[in-house]
């Protein structure tokens, strides 16, 4: 509201960056904006579709069904490859698919969020970090939907709900933080290096098979195990496995590895955004 007194300084621009403290403060005051934009992006996606939100669940579900069928019937030794034979293979696969599909959709959208948000970013200021945060937040809606399907499978097919089911919560937290951290770095870097869009989507295809999503780490040759366990998404995937009672021995190594990824990527992302916040829009 304009008043007779002097309005507070909205911003002072004297260089390409915004000091980290100031950036975080204005990020905090943009929290409503992030929520509103994420909700809009998610619900608008299914506007004018007949099936609407069903699509949010359908895609990972179909993928999980296909993989389950292929691996349990066509690939020799596929069935029974889960760490704990009491966990049905379909539940085992879907428990990996839920965090993976979140990771892949959130990170893919987050990594290109600043470039894709050019229309908004060039016309009005908010910390540019808001855009990758919105992309990751948007992906939480389908995550919740697929999680409900997973819970239904746990109840219907086994091993049944229990205290250990709660392991999905740290799994989600780890997955969200991981996507936020990676999206921060890539969203800023992609403005300068447009190749990253394609590098990231190719990388995700490779990572899908390298990360123990559809197989347990125990099936990986010994010398490669450590590599697989230390991949960024291994932590959340393994925590989800723990929730269906089928975790690998290297669970905590994977969790720590994910935490390291979060800290390193998060710090790099914050530094990059803080340094270039006010000029990222120039190159859009």
């Amino acid at each position: 509201m304009p008043t007779e007194e002097t309005a507070p300084v909205a911003f002072t621009l004297s260089g390409p960056g915004t000091p980290l403290r100031e950036l975080l403060r204005s990020l905090w005051s943009s929290r409503t904006l992030i929520g509103v934009l994420a909700r809009k992006d998610f619900f608008v996606r299914y506007r004018r579709t007949r099936l609407g939100l069903v699509w949010a669940i359908a895609l990972p579900l179909i993928q999980a069904v296909v993989l389950t069928v292929v691996f349990s019937n066509l690939v020799p030794g596929g069935r029974g490859s889960q760490a704990d034979p009491h966990t049905p293979y379909s539940v085992f696969v879907f428990a990996g698919m839920v965090p993976w599909s979140f990771f892949s959709s959130a990170f893919l959208a987050g990594a290109t969020a600043v470039v894709d948000g050019a229309n908004l970013a060039q016309r009005i200021y908010f910390p540019r970090m808001v855009l990758p945060l919105v992309a990751v937040t948007t992906a939480i809606f389908p995550l919740v939907a697929t999680l409900l399907v997973l819970l239904a499978m746990i109840v219907g097919l086994g091993p049944g709900l229990g205290l250990s089911t709660l392991w999905v919560l740290p799994g989600i937290a780890l997955g969200v933080l991981l996507c936020l951290a990676l999206s921060l770095v890539f969203s800023a870097a992609q403005v300068y290096l447009r190749d990253l869009r394609f590098a990231v989507s190719s990388g995700m295809t490779v990572l899908f098979y390298l990360t123990p999503v559809i197989y347990p780490v125990s099936r990986v040759p010994h010398e490669l195990r450590l590599l697989v366990e230390l991949l960024p998404a291994a932590g959340p995937v393994e925590l989800f496995r723990r929730a269906v009672g089928s975790a690998d021995a290297g669970l905590w190594r994977s969790v720590v590895a994910s935490l390291v990824w979060i800290v390193v990527a998060g710090a790099a992302g914050l530094a990059l955004h803080s340094k270039r916040d006010r000029v990222l829009a120039d190159l859009l």
Partner: peptide
């Protein structure tokens, strides 16, 4: 205008805007 919105920073010099900006 982009500077007054805060969307782009000057290469040198200083821009200060007070209060809420609506572009």
């Amino acid at each position: 205008l982009q500077m007054l919105c805060g969307v782009t920073a000057p290469t040198s010099g200083r821009v200060t805007v007070r209060g809420r900006v609506a572009p």
